[in-house]
Amino acid sequence: MTKAQPLAMNYDPRQLSDEELVQRAHTELFHITRAYEELMRRYQRTLFNVCARYLGNDRDADDVCQEVMLKVLYGLKNFEGKSKFKTWLYSITYNECITQYRKERRKRRLLDALSLDPLEEASEEKAPVINDKGGLDRWLVHVNQIDREILVLRFVAELEFQEIADIMHMGLSATKMRYKRALDKLREKFSGIAET
C-alpha cells in the first residue's frame, strides 16, 4: 500500500470528482468546508426534489434536507467509500424521509384521535397527498409508499437498481420486480400516457 500524497490546499472544488472531494473532506473538516460545500451544492437541488416527492410538501422537505446536510457534514469524516458518495447521500436521505414520514403520520393520528369530526378523521387516514404539479408527482400518489420510494430514487435521484436495493435493504430482483409492478400499475391507471 502506497502512502497517500499530501493534498494541495489551493484547488478549485468544482474541478474535482465526488471521490476527490470526499478525500479532501476527510483531511479538511471541520476547519475547512470547501469540499463539503461543493458536494452539497452538486446535490442540493436533487436532494430537495427527492425529499419533496417523498414527503409531499416543501416545508418538510426543507427540514429533512437540513438534517441530511448536517448528517453528511458530521458523517463525512467516517465515510469509508465502500459505496459511491451519491449512494451514501441518498441512503441518509431515504432514512431521514422515512423518519419524517412516520413522525408526520403519528402526528396525524393524534390529531385524528382528538378530532370531533368523524368525516374529517376518515379522510385524514388516506396516504399523504402530493401537490398535483403534473408529471411524476401526479403518478406517485397512485402507488404505495415503498414503490413510491423506488420510483423516486430511480427517476429523481437517478440511481441504479443495485444502489436502490442497497439503500432500501432489499434484494436486487425484488427491487426490479417492485419497480416493474409499480410501472405496470401506473400504465394501467394512466393508459394512453407513454412512459418517459
Rank of each mutant, 00 (worst) to 15 (best):
C51D: 02
Y74E: 14
R53F: 01
V68W: 11
V72T: 12
K77C: 05
V64A: 05
G81E: 02
D60V: 03
R53K: 13
E67T: 14
D58Q: 14
F85L: 06
R59S: 12
E67Y: 03
G81L: 09
L76E: 06
L89E: 01
L70I: 11
T93I: 05
D60H: 07
K82S: 09
C65S: 13
C65I: 12
V64T: 12
A52V: 10
C65H: 06
V72S: 06
I92K: 04
S83Q: 07
Y90C: 03
I92A: 02
S91G: 15
L89G: 01
D63I: 10
L73G: 05
T93E: 02
L73Q: 11
R53T: 08
M69Q: 15
G75D: 09
L55V: 00
L55D: 02
T87P: 01
N78F: 14
C65K: 12
V64I: 12
V64G: 03
A61M: 07
C65D: 06
G75L: 09
E67D: 15
N57T: 06
E67A: 13
V72M: 10
L55H: 00
V72P: 05
V72R: 10
C65V: 15
G81C: 08
C51F: 06
Y90G: 00
Q66E: 14
I92W: 07
F85W: 04
C65E: 10
K77D: 04
K82G: 03
N78W: 09
V64H: 07
